[in-house]
Design a binder for these strands. Structure first.
Lengths: 120, 120
DNA sequence: GTCCTTGTTCAAAATTCATTGAACAATTGA
DNA sequence: TCAATTGTTCAATGAATTTTGAACAAGGAC
């Protein structure tokens, strides 16, 4: 884990709320929620949402708030939801957020692009 | 109810998250959570947080997102949490938020001022 | 009616946040 | 080594939010 992440017990809800109070970041959460059953996503797979540079920015926000974990894999970055940590700290909270995040139009757009990318 | 409020079934979590992703508004929620067992608070009682004008702004944000109800009482405005509506729509969510909101330093400052105001 | 209290409106200023593009690093694979 | 892929950094722009003050309503007390 080479990037700085807050410890589980240092995750603060005000920071989490601020991190999630943004459409783009909610859409990222929605994609992760649908795809991270196994191993999360790599930043590039979220390309439909916004530019590469901007993704770096938003993923960092989520990481600093303790919402996601980012693990380098070669030149890629694997992004996963910190489900266990969030559930332990704020029971039920993440599920509520996910339920609304996966309804966002942006998520569907990106998931379609992800699907096309996998087929290509 | 002379001010516009969203119906219970129109409360959208992205809006709620955006409304709560702000220190001042979280502090308002914290005060309400401690004081609204009976009948909520009046804007003036939140005076320790920020200016009158700014309170109007933040309370409106919370109202528009569906987090609070604002009811005119003469020249005052009684502000209450929309507990039932939020619990019905996002079970457990509000309790989680409140638990962290009442720990905010700003809340204690304001509650002390409220206490002093009541004694005076 | 005349104050006083409470809160709103409006426009302006200040601040913060989000987005972009160019240049750069690091890894992978040929 | 060379090129392609993936993502970062930095500075700058643009956009949205927050904050402020002056002037204004609306109601209650006298």
């Amino acid at each position: 884990m080479s990037l700085p992440h807050p410890d589980a017990d240092q995750i603060a809800l005000p920071n989490v709320l601020a991190a999630l109070g943004d459409e783009t970041r909610l859409a990222i959460i929605g994609c992760l929620a649908r795809c991270d059953a196994m191993n999360g996503l790599v930043c590039g797979q979220l390309g439909g949402l916004t530019s590469k540079t901007n993704l770096t920015y938003h993923v960092a926000k989520l990481r600093e708030a303790g919402v996601v974990n980012v693990r380098p894999e070669g030149t890629k970055r694997r992004v996963t939801l910190r489900r266990d940590d969030l559930d332990a700290r704020f029971p039920g909270f993440l599920d509520t957020v996910i339920a609304s995040a996966i309804d966002l139009p942006l998520v569907d757009i990106t998931l379609r692009q992800l699907h096309e990318a996998v087929q290509a």
